Simulated assay, not measured.
Amino acid sequence: MKTRVLGKTGATISEIGFGAWQIGGSWGDVSEADGKRALNAALDAGVTFVDTADVYGDGRSEKIIAAVLKERGGDKPFVATKAGRRLSPHVTEGYTGENIEAFIDRSLSNLGVETLDLVQLHCPPTEVYYRPELFGALDRLVAKGKIRHYGVSVEKVEEALKAIGYPGVATVQIIYNIFRQRPHELFFAEAQKKNVGVIVRVPLASGLLSGKISKDTAFAADDHRNFNRHGEAFDVGETFAGVPFEAALEAVEQLRPLVPEGVPMAQFALRWILEQQAVSVVIPGARNEAQAQSNAAASALAAIDDETKAAIAAVYARLVKVHVHDRW
Rank of each mutant, 00 (worst) to 15 (best):
L258H: 09
A170V: 02
A45C: 11
V68T: 08
E98K: 15
R140S: 14
V50C: 09
G19R: 04
A300I: 11
R287V: 08
P203A: 06
K309R: 14
V119A: 06
A314S: 14
A218D: 12
K215G: 14
L87G: 01
I23K: 00
A221V: 15
W27V: 06
A170M: 07
L6K: 01
G262V: 09
K2F: 12
A286D: 00
P125M: 07
V259R: 10
T217F: 11
G84W: 07
A191W: 00
I175D: 09
V50L: 10
P167M: 04
T96V: 07
P244K: 07
P77N: 08
G24V: 00
H90G: 04
L319Q: 13
A292K: 02
R60A: 06
E62N: 14
G19P: 05
E261C: 08
H122D: 09
N99F: 09
F78M: 00
T9N: 03
A33K: 15
E127Y: 10
F227Q: 08
E238D: 15
A310F: 05
L134E: 05
A170Q: 01
T115H: 08
N226R: 13
A102L: 13
I64K: 01
S107Y: 00
Y150V: 02
K63A: 11
Y166W: 11
A20I: 09
E62L: 09
A143D: 15
P183M: 09
R180C: 11
L116D: 01
V50H: 04
I64C: 01
A278D: 05
V263I: 15
G151F: 02
A221C: 04
V196R: 03
V157N: 09
I213D: 04
T96C: 07
E93S: 15
F18E: 01
Q22D: 12
A160D: 05
H230V: 12
G97D: 04
G25D: 10
A42L: 07
A297V: 08
G231S: 08
N288T: 07
L249Q: 11
I147K: 03
E253S: 15
K321I: 06
A66C: 11
F240D: 01
R225A: 04
A298I: 05
V263G: 05
K321G: 10
V263A: 08
A66P: 03
R86T: 14
N228K: 09
G17P: 03
K212Q: 15
E261F: 08
P260F: 09
Q276D: 13
I13K: 07
S61E: 04
A233V: 13
A310P: 04
A300D: 15
